[in-house]
């Protein structure tokens, strides 16, 4: 294997390990026995409340990663539709009417919005997910619009229109596909950012309840015990970092690859 593909597999593995733990963890028949606070009983010891760290890790990934991934998917559905419509419409007022309001929203500090929503609907994972999605919608819409503009005004779309293809076939089938490259590159950094936002809100104690097994909440709750029982903090932190680092590396590779494609096409 070339060094390049080795690095690719390494990045993929970094993403897959936390993902597998998060998805399959809750299904494992793991017998978590409570013990003394910060003791070394069990595979990874216990946390500040005497709970088994490994047992918590196995069930804490769904909220930590699920909320972030859900938010990014939602942001792409809403922002992507806005961006595609704005890029493909022949009415300038519709384009302006959809993109201008988003320009106005851009400078709104994201953690602020999410904190207010998170506290208002305390412990509601859905509310936090929607809030994280909404602060991402303006930038996603901009990105998709910019990426779709060339394809949407090209001769292929004209031809498809003349053949009376439906809006869905043209936009999602043809224009949407041409957007995939930039979107894939953006996805890595955006997921990282979403994980950060969700984790920060939970870390601050504004989101999920302070006893939730969520990885970010675990880091926050056990931080005084870092020297007593390092794994109670380091294990959830490492899983979070592995996920974001892996996505960052993958995104970086995608950016390089698309740039090489563009260069070779010239």
């Amino acid at each position: 294997m070339s060094p390049r593909s080795v690095r690719g597999w390494f990045a993929a593995a970094l993403v897959m390990v936390p993902l597998v733990v998060a998805v399959l963890g809750p299904l494992l028949p793991y017998d978590a026995r409570p013990g003394l606070p910060y003791s070394s009983e069990g595979a990874l010891g216990t946390d500040g409340l005497g709970r088994d760290v490994l047992g918590l890790l196995l069930v804490g990934g769904r909220s930590a990663l699920g909320m972030a991934i859900g938010a990014v998917v939602l942001a792409y559905v809403v922002g992507g539709l806005i961006g595609l419509t704005a890029a493909s419409t022949r009415h300038r007022w519709l384009d302006e009417g959809m993109m201008r309001p988003l320009d106005v929203l851009l400078p709104l500090p994201s953690l602020l919005v999410i904190s207010v929503v998170a506290v208002g609907w305390r412990a509601s994972a859905l509310a936090i997910t929607v809030a994280v999605a909404m602060v991402n919608v303006p930038t996603v819409a901009r990105l998709v619009r910019a990426a779709a503009l060339d394809a949407a005004s090209g001769p292929v779309v004209e031809a498809l229109r003349m053949q009376r293809e439906s809006w869905c076939t043209i936009q999602l089938g043809y224009v949407g596909r041409s957007v995939l490259g930039p979107v894939a590159a953006d996805l890595g950094t955006r997921i990282t950012l979403a994980v950060f936002l969700v984790a920060s809100v939970n870390f601050l104690g504004l989101g999920l309840s302070p006893t939730a097994p969520d990885w970010a909440v675990s880091v926050s709750r056990n931080r005084e015990g870092l020297l007593l029982q390092p794994w109670s903090v380091l294990a959830p932190a490492l899983l979070l970092v592995s996920f974001t680092l892996g996505f960052n590396l993958l995104a970086d590779r995608l950016v390089h690859r698309s740039r090489r494609l563009v260069d070779s096409a010239r």
Binding site: V195, F196, F203, A216, R223, L227, A237, L240, L249
Partner: peptide
Amino acid sequence: LALSAIPDFVIAVVLVA
């Protein structure tokens, strides 16, 4: 690239410790 993938609070917790 690696540094930017570590959440603020993880860095903070480790530095304080």
